[in-house]
Design a protein around this nucleic acid. Structure first.
Lengths: 192, 192
DNA sequence: AATCTCATGTAAGCTGTTACATGATTTA
DNA sequence: TAAATCATGTAACAGCTTACATGAGATT
């Protein structure tokens, strides 16, 4: 009934009360490395969660025309979240534009494709470095019951994903270089 | 202007003329491992591509109330596709329900989570085995200009992705087992 | 005769993005 | 006093899913 976004919000609120603005700020860059949402989406969803009584709020004075609302998870919300967590994830179809481009890459200029993958590799290497820094901040694996276990486990997935991506980019670049410069192989006398 | 789906369709048609039904059949299970679409979406998009003169069709007699339409890429369509391929991919935000669940997993019963990851691991291992079989069918790397290069490169991405996923699942399961059974470590006298 | 596959389309609804709209509080 | 940040919402649109609708040809 409640959408995945609703549970994403509950997952954030389960770590402590927040305003809609706070949640939106957290989800602007992906929460758990793999979920984003805009503020307009979040305010709308909070109203649905409120109607379903999975969250409540306390009005406080603050900036803005309407003051601010500090949201928290209700006992029902906590139950719903707990139940959702262990339900098998409904798989939403993967859609990846870069792989689609790759599928059609045989039509295009290999030089331009190599450039595209070089750029892409830089993105993944930068993210990888960032994730590794975040990993060092967490330090040793937190235990269950500790919210930071969630962060840590999600980070692990992010690290693996970026490594896989970077590796694929490097493979593509090597393929493209090898084909573009067949002389490269001959210029190196060390290879069999 | 044309949507990504439009280019996905062009990428399929670039390999040979197809009916809308054929394209839908191909995209029901992900094309290039990372793009899906339903038939209703495809018929609608084909009409847009037709209006933009990126594809054309030949009406032929066949089953169904309206006969069948065999689509092909026009020269303009081919140019548009070629140009799109090397444009930097606009990154659509990653959304992954399993990682989101993981982020909230500290709230739930570790036993149930371990089960969820065991199931998930089986899915990835099955896909991995399937992809490996497909890789053997392709044989040695096709060269540029060969449409099969696209398939091969996309398959490489799929393989890497499934391996990364399977590895992460295994890591999660090991984390959960270690925490659930602290006696496990003590029962094995070989470890330091 | 019934069922499956081939074949094309429309409509309703949900999710997500972008733009519009307002205004108080804090900082430079 | 000007700008950035905090704060909440609405509206229009694009993309995708699900259900509805029809019917010919091939197979069982």
């Amino acid at each position: 009934m409640t959408s995945t976004l609703g549970f994403a919000i509950l997952a954030v609120l389960a770590r402590g009360e927040r305003t809609g603005y706070d949640i939106a700020a957290a989800m602007r860059r992906p929460i758990a490395y793999f979920w984003t949402a805009g503020h307009s989406q979040i305010h709308a969803e909070l109203q649905k969660l409120l109607a379903a009584e999975l969250v409540g709020y306390e009005a406080r004075q603050g900036p803005g025309p309407q003051g601010k609302k500090v949201y928290h998870v209700t006992p029902e919300g906590s139950l719903a979240l707990r139940a959702w967590v262990t339900e098998p994830p409904r798989e939403r179809p993967e859609r990846d534009e870069l792989v689609l481009k790759t599928y059609a890459s045989w039509l295009a200029d290999p030089d331009l494709i190599r450039q595209m993958f070089t750029d892409q590799l830089a993105v993944h290497e930068a993210r990888l470095a960032e994730y590794e820094r975040e990993g060092e901040l967490i330090g040793e694996p937190p235990g269950f019951g500790d919210p930071r276990f969630g962060n840590y486990a999600a980070l692990r997935c992010g690290l693996g994903y970026e490594r896989h991506r970077a590796e694929w980019c490097r493979w593509m670049i090597s393929q493209l270089s090898a084909r573009l410069n067949p002389s490269w192989e001959l210029a190196k006398p060390s290879e069999s």
